[in-house]
């Protein structure tokens, strides 16, 4: 019984983390048809910047409190906007309209560049920013103590997910965005500034990637290579859910979260690839992912 409760809670926490680190990826794909490999770099940059900023602040104010969360948020915004703009305006706009795969390769190129840029800026050492994680004490669930920060991820991420969903489906810009998604040419003909929508969407997605990194910074040790590992995981989550679908990413995160937690409990050696097994099974049965829409061709 305790085991079951632990699995459920662990899965939820891990799923929330997966969702927040992959939502930006699916959002950008859904609007722009860009599968952004550099999402991994945005995550890593967010984590580095947040960890560095928290570290700097704490060294001056050892008993810092909730302002650390604000610092993390600012770090994510700065990374998302600056790096997002650089990528979208500097690289992507030159490859819009080319083959999907070519665009993936372009973002892969950006990813490679950013890997080294991070090494040059932050060096090879690890950054640790544990302080924010202990702001909320510990909470006991079914007799098992949990770190409050981890548990809080669940409602916070759920709220972010709902916010994104509502922004797309319940606001005027969101409805225009749906028009852009549906048919770029027609949207442009209706006077919608498609380029602007692309830039803004990319910035939002980049910010979410960096936010995922910033929120992860207290949970991990920030070292070179975290972006490399993250991007394949995030791919799996969004592909399982159906590329471009926010609901899909949530379901994908839950599935993967559950699968991985179960693996950790019962068959730890499977942990490394249970994600990709789930992905393979889903794609074998539903080629577009769980919430993806098949592109039927009318002839």
């Amino acid at each position: 019984m305790i085991e079951l409760a632990a699995i459920v809670v662990d899965s939820l926490v891990y799923a929330s983390w997966l969702f927040i680190v992959s939502i930006g990826l699916t959002l950008i794909f859904g609007v722009m048809n860009v599968l952004n490999v550099a999402h991994g770099s945005l995550y890593a940059l967010g984590a580095y910047t947040a960890a560095w900023a928290v570290g700097m602040y704490v060294s001056g104010a050892p008993d810092a409190g909730f302002e650390l969360l604000a610092i993390m948020l600012v770090a994510a915004v700065v990374v998302g906007v600056v790096v997002g703009l650089l990528i979208e305006r500097g690289v992507l706009r030159w490859v819009y309209g080319r083959d999907e795969i070519v665009i993936v390769l372009a973002t892969y190129a950006v990813f490679l560049v950013l890997e080294d840029v991070m090494k040059l800026i932050f060096g090879p050492e690890s950054y640790i920013a544990f302080q924010p994680r202990f702001l909320f004490g510990t909470v006991s669930v079914a007799g098992i103590p949990y770190v409050g920060y981890d548990l809080l991820l669940v409602p916070v991420v759920a709220l972010i997910g709902l916010g994104i969903w509502a922004a797309i489906h319940r606001t005027r810009p969101g409805k225009l965005l749906i028009a852009v998604i549906h048919d770029r040419e027609i949207a442009a003909a209706l006077g919608i500034n498609v380029t602007r929508f692309f830039t803004v969407t990319f910035l939002c997605g980049a910010f979410l990637g960096a936010l995922g990194g910033a929120l992860s910074a207290p949970l991990i040790s920030v070292v070179p290579g975290i972006g490399v590992e993250l991007i394949v995981l995030a791919f799996a989550v969004v592909v399982i859910g159906g590329l471009g679908s926010v609901e899909g990413a949530a379901v994908g995160a839950l599935l993967v979260g559950l699968g991985r937690t179960a693996a950790v409990f019962f068959r730890p050696e499977l942990e490394l690839f249970v994600v990709f097994v789930v992905m393979t099974v889903v794609l074998a049965v539903r080629p577009e992912g769980l919430f993806g829409k098949p592109k039927a061709r009318r002839i």
């Binding site: 394949v232 050696e269 490394l272 690839f273 992905m279 393979t280």
Partner: peptide, 26 residues
């Protein structure tokens, strides 16, 4: 064989990561 584009690319990525996991843990 039923997949194209990004899905073909990513499925193969998944396969290779599964093998990586098996090799690294066995």
């Amino acid at each position: 064989r039923g997949h194209r584009g990004i899905f073909f690319a990513m499925l193969n990525l998944a396969f290779s990561m599964i093998l990586f996991g098996i090799l690294a843990k066995t």
